[in-house]
Write a protein that binds this DNA or RNA. Structure first.
Lengths: 199, 199
DNA sequence: GTCGAAGCGGAGCGGTTGCTCCTCTTGAAG
DNA sequence: CTTCAAGAGGAGCAACCGCTCCGCTTCGAC
């Protein structure tokens, strides 16, 4: 592992400025174009050279990971705050998905990373989200507005699925994906339906 | 457009053999690795050289289109036959999704192409599928087992979405995506739920 | 069997992309 | 102000990928 950042000598002022510029530009570009962008474009938009970029982030993957962690963490914290500030369990659950899809799902790279959560190694992203979803699930099930056999994992996978849907249709004509969301939410609330299949 | 294949002089025997080998190998590779594969690998697995491959398919896109059309058409026809051979509208609809996801969704390139159906120009793929879905929808709604405000477009988008989900979780542990399917199907059947949002 | 056209193969071209190397610049400690 | 290590920058390398070009092979009509 790398040296602990807090014990490492602080960056020079210009280096700090450049690092911030890179992060800002990269966030923008990755949201727009997904993780397949040319690193040169990120450097250009940051106003720094390739050398500088690679000094701060030794690998494209490092850069990607940093951006993704920042975005994901900020959003997961907002989601937790929103969930905690609502008493109605159903409204909390539905508001969570609505907000998640309306904001986070516009970030192409984030949605792509979501896919890797299942097929590849997951960063601590999932670790942040899981307790929020788990809380929402428990409250909704206690209130009887969520079928009893739905797991937190189901909710997480549903989020990934719907995020991809938003990517497909774009954020304009949001009503298209909102219809899919409504269908899924009604399915989650179908407390009298057939039991969900298991292993 | 190209010359009508039926009026074109028939291929030499070896050329015909090679063409078939290319199609077979390409179908395999595209199903496994998606449309991003190196053309060299397709050539290698077919046992032909690059020149031969590009003689039969002047562009990677041409090859892709050919394979996708074959796969998609074969599957859409099977789906129509299955739908026609079932009297129960609910069973027909649910069987359609079950079969679609269990088979077609394992073909990576096909699922990827599905995404482009919404964001880019669509081949006649959609044209083949639409009437089948439309029929399934009408029958189910007449029988009162499908909420009245669901459109054929909703069903098509749901198919694309769930196909992607299957890709995420893989065909092993199929029960994971089957749970998502169950939730969606129950949502579709929620005839007393809130109306779906519109434009 | 002969021969010409159709077909074959694969080295290689041009473009892209992740990353490095090395020279020049600049912040900040003394 | 001086000094020098930390930092900046961008040309260029290596790998990859879609596609082409051209000399060689093979089919099949006669």
């Amino acid at each position: 592992m790398a040296t602990d950042p807090s014990t490492r000598r602080p960056l020079r002022a210009d280096a700090e400025r450049n690092r911030a510029a890179i992060i800002e530009a990269a966030t923008e570009v990755l949201a727009e174009q997904g993780s397949a962008v040319d690193v040169r474009e990120i450097a250009q938009r940051s106003g720094v050279g390739m050398g500088t970029l690679y000094r701060h982030f030794p690998t494209k993957e490092d850069l990607l990971g940093t951006i993704l962690d920042r975005e994901f963490t900020a959003w997961a914290c907002a989601a937790r705050r929103a969930a905690d500030s609502t008493d109605d369990p159903r409204a909390a659950l539905e508001g969570f998905y609505e907000h998640a899809l309306a904001t986070q799902a516009c970030h192409r790279a984030v949605v792509e990373a979501y896919g890797n959560t299942w097929s590849g190694p997951s960063p601590d992203c999932t670790g942040l989200l899981h307790p929020v979803l788990d809380d929402l699930r428990a409250r909704a099930q206690d209130a009887g507005v969520l079928r009893a056999d739905v797991t937190t994992g189901d909710l997480a996978l549903l989020l990934a699925t719907l995020s991809h849907t938003v990517q497909l249709v774009g954020d304009h004509c949001a009503w298209v994906w909102r219809r899919q969301l409504r269908i899924a939410l009604d399915g989650l609330g179908a407390v009298h339906g057939a039991p969900l299949p298991t292993a």
